[in-house]
């Protein structure tokens, strides 16, 4: 099976942020032995998104290995030699060999296990989706707050502002609308309990927050700069529409004016 390896290696070395780095002892593919053996090999590891790269050294310019952290669980494990801080990445698909790794100390071990267990694309997507919903709510309640204050002032009210005020927002939409977050296979039942409870935590507090978002807007949202930006956006939109209409109108006049 082919992979765009050159691009993958380029990504590994690019200056996009690493989510975790450090030295780990590894037993993967060491020598020809089928199973792990010996003291393993000390390599520099870089976690970027859902990809875990290893390098010969910190300055290594070519990744030695790549692991794709999808459909896997991370758990504490026993190393083949007395090594106290080992952990394993296990894949739910049958026949995929787990990776056995070991950190230098308990703090490093914990940090790695935490970072690796939250590395999947599905986890990132879940959080993005949650924030997307929160922002929509915040905008809605701000708009309704504005509407009610308009009414109070008995002034002419404009239609509520659109949900999307910037192109980045539109692009950030979660790709799959037809599936609920819990039903994708990569987020399926094969996660360790820690993962499952974390997801539950995220979703649980999400619904709490959404509930709160429906209440009338909180006092913080009426701070001047927020409102200024908010009205500013609307004025820009109105101005654009006005300019367009003015152009069309002018074109019409010019035609009529001709003999």
């Amino acid at each position: 099976m082919k992979l765009n390896e050159r691009s993958v290696a380029h990504y590994a070395l690019s200056d996009s942020p690493a989510d975790h780095t450090g030295f780990l002892r590894t037993w993967w593919g060491s020598g020809t032995a089928p199973g792990p053996s010996g003291a393993g090999r000390r390599c520099w590891f870089v976690l970027k998104g859902n990809l875990l790269f290893s390098f010969e050294s910190r300055e290594g310019r070519a990744p030695l290995s790549l692991a794709v952290l999808e459909g896997c669980t991370v758990e504490l494990a026993e190393a083949p030699v007395p090594e106290e801080f080992a952990f394993a990445i296990r894949f739910s698909a049958p026949g995929v060999r787990p990776y056995l790794l070991a950190a230098d100390g308990p703090a490093a071990q914990e940090a790695w296990v935490k970072a690796l267990s939250r590395a999947s694309f599905g986890y990132m997507r879940l959080v993005v989706r949650e924030l997307e919903a929160q922002l929509r709510e915040a905008r809605k309640s701000l708009a309704s707050h504005r509407r009610s204050s308009c009414r109070a002032a008995a002034s002419r009210c404009k239609p509520p502002a659109p949900d999307h005020c910037s192109p980045a927002l539109e692009n950030g939409h979660s790709p799959c609308k037809d599936r609920s977050p819990g039903s994708t296979a990569e987020e399926g039942g094969s996660r360790p309990s820690g993962w499952a409870s974390l997801e539950w935590e995220v979703q649980g507090s999400a619904s709490l927050l959404l509930g709160r978002g429906q209440s009338p807007v909180s006092p913080e949202t009426s701070c001047f700069s927020t409102l200024h930006d908010w009205y500013g956006q609307e004025i820009l939109e109105l101005r654009q529409g006005w300019l367009k209409r003015a152009r069309v109108g002018r074109a019409g006049w010019e035609q009529k004016d001709r003999p």
Binding site: P17, M124, V128, A138, C223, T226, D229
Partner: peptide
């Protein structure tokens, strides 16, 4: 993944600006 990350940072910023609270 990098696009997701940027979207997340954008949303986090926007929400914080609007509500004064960090959603994360």
């Amino acid at each position: 993944y990098e696009f997701m990350r940027r979207s997340l940072v954008f949303y986090r910023n926007e929400i914080q600006k609007m509500t004064g609270k960090d959603p994360l």
